[in-house]
């Protein structure tokens, strides 16, 4: 396995990077949806993030990466019980994955050969405590997406089939990426992602040149390039770890609550999920920046990511929801 592209070496795409860092600080924000053109570094960013995150401590051999021997599910069988450090799991969900592969199912091998009924964990088990990445999420079968979002929200995967009854924790951050040219996502599903980001190829030539230069340097000498950026990545990792521990202490003044509510009202976003996500994301950002309390500036900075996918579609508005959010933020939160 070669070293992934360093997170801090990604040129531009600040909103995408910010959204990913926020979910790393507070996984409760929910997933991130990244929509944009091909070749804008969506996959690169997800893989880079995994390498950036601090490793997790888990029971050796545990299929769901349990943090303590007591938490290992009984179907996992006897384990040595040693603890190991491993990188934050990032599991790729291929398109066309069957429900069996996602949730886990009867182990066909053991059923055939030994006639035993045993559970074979699926991708959701492997993604526990980590990230589940779906490239081209808009092309994924609807029933799989429903299932994923359901599990992502409840944090638990329940399998009831073929006489098996199994439940195991499945807490992960869902990261979906896609290209809107190839198909849209149903609004119900959009709404379930915590943050959504639109990425585009950089328009200005100098930035593009810089992207190409860095990528080329990386392709030619991976170790050297990663080493060159290691210090920056380490600093960012330290900042994320510090933010995680600071998060519970971040204060949320009433004025900020009012700001969130006013913004959501003005935008006419459906439901209360928008406000909650907005608040959590703003709090995570405050923790990341080392602030003691959430301020209006934090709300303003995360508002586009937290709200743009919750607006009612207006077929006449060619400017798109991003512009609408920006306009409303400027009006409501001067």
């Amino acid at each position: 396995m070669t070293a992934p592209f360093p997170f801090s070496a990604i040129v531009g795409q600040d909103e995408m990077k910010q959204a990913m860092i926020l979910t790393a600080i507070d996984p409760g924000i929910g997933g991130v949806l990244v929509f944009g053109d091909r070749g804008t570094g969506k996959s690169t960013a997800v893989r880079a993030l995994a390498a950036l995150l601090p490793p997790i401590v888990a029971v050796e051999g545990c299929p769901v990466n349990s943090a303590a021997p007591e938490a290992v599910p009984d179907w996992a069988g006897p384990l040595p019980g040693r603890m190991v450090t491993k990188p934050t799991p990032v599991v790729d969900l291929p398109l066309g994955a069957t429900e069996d592969r996602v949730t886990g199912a009867l182990d066909i091998e053991r059923a055939l050969v030994r006639g035993e009924k045993a559970f074979q964990p699926g991708l959701l088990a492997r993604a526990n405590r980590g990230y589940l990445y779906i490239d081209e999420v808009n092309l994924l079968e609807d029933h799989i997406v429903d299932l994923l979002l359901d599990v992502a929200q409840s944090g638990e995967n329940v399998v009831e089939r073929e006489g098996l009854s199994i439940r195991h924790p499945a807490r992960f951050v869902l990261v979906g990426s896609g290209n809107p040219e190839e198909g849209e996502l149903r609004p119900q599903l959009l709404d379930r992602f915590g943050l959504s980001v639109e990425v585009a190829s950089p328009r200005d030539v100098e930035t593009r040149v810089e992207v190409v230069r860095r990528r080329d340097a990386y392709d030619r000498d991976r170790e050297g390039f990663v080493k060159k950026w290691a210090a920056k990545d380490a600093a960012l990792r330290a900042q994320i770890v510090a933010a995680r521990s600071a998060l519970p202490a971040v204060k949320t003044p009433n004025t900020v609550l009012h700001d969130c509510a006013a913004l959501c009202l003005a935008l006419g976003s459906d439901g209360l999920r928008g406000e909650l996500t907005l608040l959590r994301a703003a709090r995570a950002l405050a923790a990341f920046e080392g602030a003691a309390a959430v301020e209006r500036a934090h709300v303003r900075a995360v508002a586009p990511s937290a709200l743009r996918h919750r607006l009612r579609r207006d077929p006449l508005d060619e400017a798109g929801s991003t512009a609408r959010v920006a306009r409303t933020v400027a009006e409501v939160l001067p």
Binding site: D37, R38, G39, T40, G41, A200, S201, P202, V205, R208, V209, V211, V212, R213, R215, D216, D219
Partner: peptide, 23 residues
């Protein structure tokens, strides 16, 4: 790298993979 990236931009190629592959 600059020349290829600019050429790609002049041809209105949005993807950044194009100049990399050209390189």
């Amino acid at each position: 790298a600059t020349a290829l990236t600019r050429a790609a931009a002049a041809l209105a190629i949005p993807s950044l993979r194009a100049p990399l592959l050209a390189l």
